[in-house]
Amino acid sequence: MARRYTSDLTWDDVTPKALYMNRRQIMSGAGAMLGAGLIGGAAQAQGALEPNSWEEITTYNNYYEFGTRKEDPARNAHTLTTSPWEIVIDGMVDNPGTYSFEEIVAGQTIEERIYRFRCVEAWSMVIPWNGFELADLLERVGVQDGARYVAFETALRPDEMPGVRLPVLDWPYREGLRLDEAMHPLTIMATGIYGETIPNQNGAPIRLVVPWKYGFKSIKSIVRITLTDEQPHATWNATQPDEYGFYSNVNPNVNHPRWSQATERRIGGGLFASRQDTLMFNGYEAEVAALYEGMDLAEFF
């Protein structure tokens, strides 16, 4: 990669901690409408892309291993043991092996990356992740010639994950990227949010974040990374291939068969919030469009 990605968002875009931690109290108080108006105004002054509050990011999650309702992961994920944590890195790499979480993050520069996060269900947030570029990790383990894809796998622990007792999905949850997508400077391995350790419901201790793809591509609580020359198994893609493509790039022009992807609802706007237009590649078109040059994005959705 010629240059590292530099976010056009800065710390100034981040809501002051006191504000994002307290928003809930203000919202739930008797003067909810008034409070929301005041906070909205203060945040607006800091830039167009205001990150969601800690509460929003950590109580509204899709993590089916802990239940299918949005509030289930926040309620159930505390049972997940995140330390010690190991990741198996194998396949077409020079240094395969089982790496501890500490070995994985050792020597990595943890950066602040404020990204838009767009779920395939047509809601979105802005999340201030802390993490490092996946490319840096892959370079350290040495990607062999001929590797074309990266496969990822989430932990599968029936004792700690009440949701996996039901065959909601074909567990363990798996995802994959093309190697050039994985090596793109926007693609990160996140270990924190708002400078805090990433909560279990958000994919502790380490997860993928690919901001120009629908959220389900950004696999959580990773225990395996495999370099391969074949397009890897991806859970949603395998479950309903006509609804969830392998690429699953955010694209307002290609609708999900059961709902429109043209607009999205930004979490945090309350009961009377307007929908907003979904951006091509979730707003990262300038950075990633070149990856898909010449591809029919309606066919490879």
Binding site: S28, S53, E55, T59, K70, F272
Partner: peptide, 8 residues
Amino acid sequence: ATGGLGVE
């Protein structure tokens, strides 16, 4: 309307 049903 007052935040009692979560963030969405």
